[in-house]
Simulated assay, not measured.
Amino acid sequence: MVPVLFAFALCTGAASAQSPKSGCALQPVGGTSRQLLRCQGGLTVIAESGARYSLVDRNKDGKVDAAKLQSKALLLDFAAGSSGTGFQVSTPQAIAAVRGTKWAVDVAAGKTSVFVVRGAVAVQRPTGGTGVVLNPGEGVDVDQGTSALTVKRWPRARVSALMARFGQ
């Protein structure tokens, strides 16, 4: 499986019950307040404790194909070769889209950070403009400004700190 970092809301984060219509099943993560969702179509989502998000079925086929993330972080794993048209995460500062990959999206203090564990993810601002493509080990920080997005290889300490928030 590959983690992935939107339409009517199917389920909302922060420990709410999941709608049977979402195609996702909530599984407890022993001893933590993180949420683990397993969804139809090969998607697994781990939500950091306190994350505010909603899952969306953009084409209304009964399968989650997007997320809207307002705060904190999600780790998404979208199985390569699964059916569907890919997956995207939208935040106030960025849109990250993928097909068959594992990545994390983190929203905090007017900034969205996207990091790719496996696969490739396209990132751009919601207002459009030139986007970037991230490969494994790369990340980008997107603020509300208009400066060009800069892809960087993230240091091990930053990656470890982010992944630890998901018990990884």
Results as ranks from 00 to 15, higher is better:
2 V>G: 13
3 P>K: 07
5 L>H: 11
7 A>V: 06
13 G>R: 07
15 A>G: 15
17 A>C: 09
19 S>G: 09
20 P>A: 02
22 S>R: 01
22 S>P: 00
24 C>H: 11
25 A>H: 05
25 A>P: 08
27 Q>N: 09
28 P>M: 03
28 P>L: 04
28 P>V: 05
29 V>Q: 03
32 T>F: 08
33 S>F: 15
35 Q>E: 11
40 Q>C: 00
41 G>E: 03
42 G>W: 09
42 G>L: 11
43 L>I: 06
43 L>N: 10
44 T>S: 12
48 E>N: 05
49 S>T: 15
49 S>W: 13
50 G>K: 15
51 A>M: 02
52 R>Q: 07
53 Y>A: 09
55 L>Y: 14
55 L>P: 12
56 V>M: 01
58 R>D: 11
58 R>E: 01
58 R>G: 03
59 N>I: 09
60 K>S: 07
63 K>G: 11
65 D>W: 03
65 D>S: 02
67 A>N: 13
68 K>L: 01
69 L>D: 07
69 L>N: 09
70 Q>L: 10
74 L>Q: 03
74 L>H: 02
76 L>N: 00
77 D>I: 06
81 G>M: 04
82 S>C: 14
83 S>M: 12
83 S>F: 14
84 G>M: 02
85 T>L: 13
86 G>W: 02
90 S>L: 06
91 T>Q: 02
92 P>M: 04
94 A>T: 08
95 I>H: 02
95 I>C: 02
96 A>T: 08
98 V>R: 03
98 V>T: 00
98 V>G: 07
101 T>A: 09
101 T>C: 12
102 K>P: 04
104 A>T: 14
105 V>I: 11
107 V>N: 11
108 A>Q: 11
108 A>G: 03
109 A>D: 08
109 A>G: 05
110 G>M: 00
110 G>Y: 01
110 G>Q: 05
111 K>H: 06
112 T>F: 12
112 T>E: 15
114 V>M: 08
114 V>F: 04
116 V>F: 06
120 A>C: 03
120 A>I: 13
121 V>M: 08
128 G>R: 01
128 G>H: 08
129 G>H: 10
131 G>D: 06
131 G>H: 07
132 V>R: 03
132 V>M: 02
133 V>G: 08
133 V>I: 04
141 D>M: 12
143 D>E: 06
145 G>I: 00
146 T>I: 05
150 T>F: 02
150 T>V: 06
151 V>A: 06
151 V>S: 06
153 R>Q: 15
153 R>H: 15
153 R>Y: 14
155 P>Q: 12
155 P>D: 05
157 A>Y: 01
158 R>D: 04
159 V>G: 01
160 S>R: 10
161 A>C: 04
163 M>V: 03
163 M>A: 07
168 Q>Y: 03
